[in-house]
């Protein structure tokens, strides 16, 4: 696989997400939204009632993160990705509603991968545990929904050159499968 670095700005155009390939390194700038387990559960309750979500979805990115509290004078605390698999039950429906990318860590389900192909969307991985490094690319953070969830509240973040890797693309590519197959030394 050919590794290259691509700059992305939000909101994302479908032409752009459709062109991304596994192994591509991306640097994201613009606005992204955060949500984890509890927020996703709440989103689905709203959708089931036919109500508006507190975040826009069209062309947007959701980052699965629960940051540490910001120290005084800082925009955000440490803010690395959480395990995406816990959001697998929710992601396909959000992609069908216009979401173009999610950022997390760890592998996704077949249902998510199919929804990525169907919607020409991508799944991006940020390096788990690289939370202090990633925080440097987050310039502002504002809680816009569910403050009662604490670390799990929904945040609107402005990011500049947020580093991530394309791990599932819209052509069915899966870097977890391809990368591991390449370096496996057992039959």
């Amino acid at each position: 696989m050919e590794d290259k670095t691509i700059r992305l700005s939000t909101p994302l155009d479908e032409d752009i997400t459709a062109s991304l390939t596994i192994g591509d390194r991306v640097l994201i700038s613009g606005v992204i939204y955060t949500a984890r387990d509890s927020a996703h559960k709440r989103f689905f309750e709203l959708l089931d009632k036919g109500e508006e979500l507190p975040i826009p979805l069209k062309g947007q990115i959701i980052y699965f993160v629960g940051p540490t509290p910001a120290k005084p004078g800082r925009a955000i605390g440490s803010a690395g990705p959480t395990t995406s698999g816990r959001m697998d039950a929710y992601t396909p429906r959000l992609l069908d509603l216009g979401l173009k990318a999610t950022i997390g860590k760890g592998q996704r389900s077949d249902e998510v991968k199919e929804a990525l192909i169907r919607n020409k969307a991508v799944y991006l991985m940020a390096v788990g545990g690289a939370a202090a490094l990633i925080a440097r690319s987050i310039k502002s953070s504002e809680v816009i929904a569910y403050p009662e969830f604490g670390a799990e509240a929904v945040r609107k973040m402005e990011v500049v050159d947020f580093p991530a890797i394309v791990v599932n693309d819209s052509k069915g590519g899966d870097l977890f499968v391809e990368g591991v197959t390449k370096y496996r030394k057992t039959s």
């Binding site: 592998q107 991985m125 791990v167 870097l175 977890f176 591991v180 197959t181 370096y183 496996r184 030394k185």
Partner: peptide, 10 residues
């Protein structure tokens, strides 16, 4: 030997 590698990307 499993080849999982750093963050599971091989």
């Amino acid at each position: 030997a499993l080849g999982i590698g750093p963050m599971g990307l091989g």
